[in-house]
Amino acid sequence: MTPEALTALIDATWPAKSMTDVAGWTIREGAGGGSRVSAATATPTAKINERGQAEASMRALGQRPLFMVRHGEDALDAALEADGYAIKDPVTYYTAPTATLAAERPPAVTCFQVWPPLATQAEIWDAGGVDDARLAVMARAAGPKTCVLGRIHDTPAGTAFAAIHDGTAMLHAIETAHAFRRNGLARHMIRALAFWAQDHEAAQIALLVTKANVGANALYTSLGMTPVGGYHYRIHPEA
């Protein structure tokens, strides 16, 4: 997948409140929804050493200047580093054929598809840092979408969100409550969403995870997902 296609997938399945073009840069209004919906990206007309208007636009939105640096954007990365921008949250993009993940159904009464999310899911997400602003991101996604409620011993224990764009189901906000981790629930929720994706004719499953999340990276690899790229952010040194 090209960097531009990956960005389009993110924008469709985890959308910013608004996007505008400013002097060749795509400016995202995140509305508190995190880096993914707040970072600026370069378009083909962007001049990497002329970022003043982009930075001013982000500040006007109440956002600290933040740029997503995708695979192959080495010149942009070097220019931002020279201006004191620090690396933030390197991310790996994983993908797999839907059929690979939809090969084995989760145990009975473990995972339930729900939309809109239930209050108990919102509580699980909130405890993991997925707050109301990120729930608003999910609500903005326009394509086919769903979330799954994971249960252990008849107790709500996990939740995850998925949306489809251009034949790919993108998984976001996979969260297991702390007391129920290491029970395989994340694996079950991913498989449940894969069956949902298969029903909606999505040929690929994809997700993003920070490189620092060692456990999640190991899980996705064990499921047969392949790392095929990624990006990192560069954040302005001054708030």
Rank of each mutant, 00 (worst) to 15 (best):
D74P: 01
A5P: 00
A60S: 15
T100V: 05
V69Q: 02
E29F: 01
E175Q: 14
H165L: 03
A23C: 07
F195H: 15
D74E: 14
A197Q: 01
A218K: 14
A192H: 08
G62R: 11
D89R: 13
L76M: 07
D154E: 15
A46V: 05
D89E: 14
A31T: 05
A86L: 15
V137H: 01
A173Q: 12
S35M: 10
S18I: 13
E4D: 13
Q53P: 01
A216V: 07
M1H: 00
A239C: 08
A160W: 01
P117E: 04
H165P: 01
V228P: 01
E29G: 07
P15L: 09
A42Q: 02
M68P: 00
W196L: 07
V91D: 07
E175L: 04
P65N: 06
E50D: 14
H165V: 02
R64Q: 06
A179T: 13
A23K: 06
G230I: 07
A179V: 09
A102N: 01
G230Y: 01
A5S: 12
I10E: 04
N183F: 05
P106D: 14
E175G: 04
V91M: 14
G167E: 00
A192W: 03
L193R: 15
F161N: 10
L80H: 08
G62F: 09
A173M: 11
G24H: 12
M19K: 12
G34F: 05
F112H: 13
D21T: 11
V214M: 12
D11S: 09
G230D: 06
T226I: 12
A16L: 11
A157V: 10
K17R: 15
F67I: 07
P156N: 06
E81C: 08
G32Q: 03
L80K: 04
H232A: 10
G229S: 12
H165M: 06
L135I: 12
T41S: 09
P107M: 02
A40Y: 12
W196C: 06
T41M: 05
E104K: 14
G72L: 13
A212M: 09
V22F: 10
G143T: 11
E55T: 03
D154K: 13
G52T: 11
A99I: 02
A16M: 07
K145I: 02
H153W: 06
D131V: 11
G229E: 12
A169T: 00
H200S: 07
A162G: 05
R70E: 10
Y85C: 05
I124Q: 04
A96M: 03
M138C: 13
T146A: 13
D199Q: 15
T45L: 12
S57F: 09
I164S: 02
V69G: 02
I235G: 00
K47E: 14
R234V: 12
R105K: 14
